[in-house]
Design a protein around this nucleic acid. Structure first.
Ligand SMILES: [Zn+2]
Ligand SMILES: [Zn+2]
Ligand SMILES: [Zn+2]
Ligand SMILES: [Zn+2]
Lengths: 132, 132
DNA sequence: AACGTTATGTAATAATATAACATTTATAAG
DNA sequence: CTTATAAATGTTATATTATTACATAACGTT
């Protein structure tokens, strides 16, 4: 059972945009797209993004400085994220693989250290791009 | 046997700085530190960084926009990188764990897709910070 | 109503990274 | 040694990404 987050006005506008786009969006592209809805300044976007990331509705693709809606309904807290990124068409998808997440969540390094969060980004060519 | 890369003048200056520091350095901090050596513009730094990343002498910590010298002598091509990052003191260390790298290099997602590269960042508290 | 918390608005600025163009240096053939 | 090619450098300007600072408004709880 996951906590219900009542998004604020700006958060909802920005989440809906990202969610509908279905792909990673950059902050200033988001800004451009929501200006007609009254969101005029970068900070308004970044504040909403920060909150949405915090509650796991979106994730940041660190290598791309872009934000994508969570594609994994069970991933409501952004502590364990994994993505595949096509280096040709920049398609990104979230990987939800329970073995992988279990493996990484339980991973401890050579000094016995365990970690509370991780982010993994795989790079390669997606099927479309590979078959070209 | 790994390929010997003869670093150019700027590449060497910048690699030496990062390597000696032993911790992640940001591009403009690098710039500041090498200005006395004649490197005056951001682009000179970014070009050297790009090359050093390409040949695996340094890695970029994506979540921090920072660059760290490779701590793993066998990791001369930046295709499979893993780091642990302390969220309190920002200490970063490169993880070299053959099981982990084998697991991730061989990982294929639910559609059977395999990937040629990955970058993994673990977050948590380092031993020092945990014991405070 | 009073309070603390969360969200918003706005302007300015900081931090990170690239484009464009000219020149120089290194490497390798012929 | 000359020519060709690629790699690296120098320089200016600009683009992109993100935060600081401060003021105001809305929300949730008691
Ligand atoms: Zn998710
Ligand atoms: Zn693709
Ligand atoms: Zn390395
Ligand atoms: Zn620490």
């Amino acid at each position: 059972m996951q906590k219900e987050h009542n998004l604020s006005k700006n958060q909802k506008i920005i989440f809906d945009l990202i969610d509908k786009s279905g792909e990673p969006m950059k902050a200033y592209s988001i800004l451009f797209n929501v200006q007609k809805k009254g969101i005029k300044a970068p900070l308004q976007v970044y504040r909403a993004l920060d909150k949405l990331v915090e509650i796991g509705k979106i994730h940041k693709i660190e290598s791309r400085n872009a934000f994508i809606a969570c594609q994994n309904s069970s991933c409501q807290v952004s502590k364990a994220t994994a993505f595949s990124i096509c280096e040709s068409c920049e398609n990104v998808s979230e990987i939800s693989n329970s073995k992988l997440s279990k493996y990484l969540s339980n991973f401890s390094d050579d000094s016995g250290m365990k970690y509370s969060k991780y982010n993994l980004e795989f790079f390669g060519l997606c099927k479309k791009c590979k078959s070209k």
